[in-house]
């Protein structure tokens, strides 16, 4: 990776951290558990990396590792979103 490209990535990282802090401090304590399970779900974004690893042409060690990564990341995505929805469904007004 060229240094300029790395700098752009760093910009994105720093700005994303600030957005994260701003948005998440507004989440009320009542919803902190769904926040955690929901962030489990979005940290399943590593599925994107896993898909790339598993998707390359021939089947070898790299693609098999990628495939195992897909399994764990998908558990996070599907499990995380489903359980978050299960919880949020219960929060009702009188």
């Amino acid at each position: 990776m060229i240094f300029g490209e790395f700098l752009i990535t760093l910009y994105i990282l720093v700005l994303a951290i600030f957005v994260g802090f701003e948005v998440i401090t507004k989440v009320p304590p009542t919803l902190h558990t769904p926040l955690m399970s929901g962030s489990n779900a979005i940290s399943g974004i590593s599925v994107v990396g896993a898909l790339l690893s598993a998707g390359y042409g021939e089947t070898n060690l790299a693609t098999v590792l990628g495939c195992v990564a897909i399994v764990f990341a998908t558990i996070n995505v599907v499990g995380g979103y489903t359980v978050t929805d299960r919880m949020l469904k219960m929060f009702k007004k009188k």
Partner: peptide, 25 residues
């Protein structure tokens, strides 16, 4: 993505992960 051509492994992985995740949830 252009490099992604091996769909068998991907489908197996996604089905397995979804089933476990949904069961847990």
């Amino acid at each position: 993505e252009r490099n992604v051509i091996n769909y068998q492994l991907i489908i197996i992985g996604i089905i397995l992960g979804s089933a476990i995740g949904a069961f847990l949830a």
